[in-house]
């Protein structure tokens, strides 16, 4: 046993699916090493604990906080601020906290539109809500005032809310990468603050498929063709995001004949993930006729933002759809 006093670690789950919580277990038996090195002071998903326990900690008392999920309510923002204050190292864990992730696609609408869908137009909820009730921030009850978190119009990433020290990309992050991060923390060999802990190349680097030169006459949806298992999916017309997506997953999806959807986010130094795909794909569309070009794009990419910014809309340069005032 080490003489060193154990560190303190926290986990938090904001706007995300919960997959990141499970992904932590991908480190397998090494979880015991983590347990040996750290006391888990806060992990609502796995251990009993209360926010007030965190509030009671001294500032910077938590050595490492792995924060997953985007910020879309006042409660999540509060927790992000709290954990930032209490943690020496705050890690944005997974694509939602790093770049908004799937919840970030809510930035194509706003609170009103989302609530309309959920409480009014959705066939599952509407019949049970004939009076069109909506969540209220404050509700007066005989026992006192009840508060619900405020639901924001715009989903934010963790670093649009508080300062973030490191990023672990992925939906969810890969076990090896998590372990690499933990090791770095344990050994005090962390990279420069602000870094993404991961590769500086893209998924093609890890993809074993044979690539030749790219010319695309038509984009196919995944259900339209049965791809050849050995050649580049993009060259077969499947919109594979691997060209632009940070390596580190071992090309998991292309490996099983499914195009990369970009969960590991953009490569090092890239400002806007979608723009990289837009530019690269537009460059290799095999037509010089403006009408045909429009047709190829329209036919093959019915939901461009969902395709190019599936995980990164909140972190993109434009962040969200234009709000009509």
């Amino acid at each position: 046993m080490s003489e060193k006093p154990k560190g303190k670690m926290a986990f938090y789950w904001a706007a995300s699916c919960g997959g990141c919580e499970i992904a932590v277990l991908q480190v397998d038996a090494k979880i015991l090493d983590i347990a040996a090195a750290f006391d888990i002071v806060f992990w609502p998903c796995a251990t009993d604990g209360k926010t007030r326990d965190v509030e009671k900690l001294a500032d910077g008392e938590i050595d490492v906080c792995l924060f997953n999920g985007a910020i879309r309510t006042s409660e999540q923002e509060y927790m992000a601020r709290l954990l930032r204050k209490k943690s020496k190292v705050l890690i944005a864990f997974g694509s939602c906290s790093q770049e908004g992730g799937i919840p970030g696609l809510a930035n194509l609408s706003n609170r009103k539109e989302i609530f309309d869908t959920v409480y009014k137009e959705n066939s599952a909820t509407f019949p049970e809500n004939p009076d069109d009730l909506r969540p209220q921030h404050e509700t007066e009850m005989p026992e006192g005032t009840l508060y619900l978190p405020v639901f924001y119009d715009t989903v934010k990433t963790l670093d649009q809310t508080v300062e973030v020290d490191y990023y672990l990309p992925g939906c969810p992050p890969e076990g090896d990468n998590i372990w690499a991060a933990v090791t770095a923390i344990l050994e005090g060999k962390l990279p420069d603050p602000g870094s993404v802990i991961g590769a500086h190349s893209t998924v093609c680097d890890e993809c074993k498929r044979i690539r030749t030169e790219k010319k695309i006459k038509k984009f196919y949806r995944t259900w339209e063709i049965k791809p050849d298992p050995d050649t580049c999916l993009l060259e077969q017309g499947l919109l594979c995001c691997g060209i632009a997506t940070r390596a580190g997953c071992g090309a998991l999806c292309p490996e099983v004949n499914s195009p990369c959807i970009g969960c590991q986010g953009a490569n090092e130094g890239v400002q806007d993930f979608g723009a990289r795909l837009i530019s690269a794909l537009a460059s290799v569309i095999d037509s010089e006729d403006p009408e045909e070009i429009d047709q190829i794009i329209k036919d093959g990419i019915p939901d461009p933002i969902g395709t190019f910014y599936r995980f990164s809309l909140a972190k993109s340069l434009l962040r969200r759809k234009k709000q009509t005032v």
Partner: peptide, 14 residues
């Protein structure tokens, strides 16, 4: 082609 792509995408962002 890039312009065509941008013109197609930007309306989705309003």
């Amino acid at each position: 082609r890039r312009h065509a792509m941008l013109k197609y995408i930007l309306p989705q962002m309003g």
